[in-house]
Nucleic acid binder design. Structure first.
Length: 201
DNA sequence: ATCAAGATTACCT
DNA sequence: GGTAATCTTGATA
């Protein structure tokens, strides 16, 4: 079996919506103390500050969102509701203010570690299997992603993505984004059809 | 200095 | 279906 290739700069520095659709099916990897946590990306949402009122960058650059104005290939992590972190992939060229929220992942490696992080103790994995990473806050908790990871370069080797075959169009569902109040009609949520790890609503 | 809102989740009835 | 939890950021003064 050949080892999948790490996605390079050229993957990320393209149009946000294009990258969002192609992110589905790719493997998200985080190396933590020598162990690997990984999973397949099954649900994402695109945000583009140029036209999209729901994007954090819509009102211009701030201390919080400045990484979104870098060129693609960095991690944008933010804290919300006093409770959760959310994890985004910065895209497109310098100055665009674009990123993609990772909403759900299908766990592959390090599942026991993820369960421990989610529940703070050992649990019956089978029972919570579909509840570990089926939402943006849950993904960050399971993968132990927090403000320390703000701005990480995805072409490095702590957090990165692995190339996978492109999905067929018929495997991708397009819909409106979840949990926002502005620009609600933009069709910028993408998920893998019939995948049980996609967040509900 | 103060304040309102938030790209969510878990737990309640 | 409703809402408490909990705190950072960014805007306004």
């Amino acid at each position: 079996m050949n080892t999948p290739t790490k996605l390079g700069k050229e993957f990320y520095t393209r149009n946000t919506v294009t990258v969002a659709k192609e992110l589905l099916g790719k493997i998200f990897v985080k190396k933590e103390n020598g162990i690997y946590l990984s999973g397949k990306i099954v649900e994402v949402e695109a945000y583009d500050g140029a036209t999209d009122e729901a994007a954090h960058t819509f009102g211009g650059m701030t201390e919080r969102n400045k990484i979104m104005f870098n060129d693609g290939g960095y991690l944008y992590v933010y804290f919300t509701y006093g409770v959760h972190f959310c994890c985004n992939i910065v895209t497109d060229k310098q100055g665009s203010g674009t990123a993609i929220l990772i909403r759900a992942i299908e766990p592959l490696e390090g599942i026991e570690y993820m369960a421990k992080k989610r529940y703070g103790k050992k649990i019956k994995i089978e029972k919570e299997k579909f509840n570990l990473t089926n939402g943006p806050g849950k993904v960050c908790q399971a993968f132990n992603i927090n403000r320390k990871h703000y701005g990480i370069d995805l072409t490095g080797d702590s957090i990165f993505l692995l190339e996978q075959p492109k999905l067929k169009k018929s495997e991708i569902v397009i819909s409106h984004r979840i949990g926002i109040r502005k620009s609600v009609d933009l069709p910028w949520r993408f998920y893998i059809k019939d995948n049980p790890f996609v967040s509900k609503r």
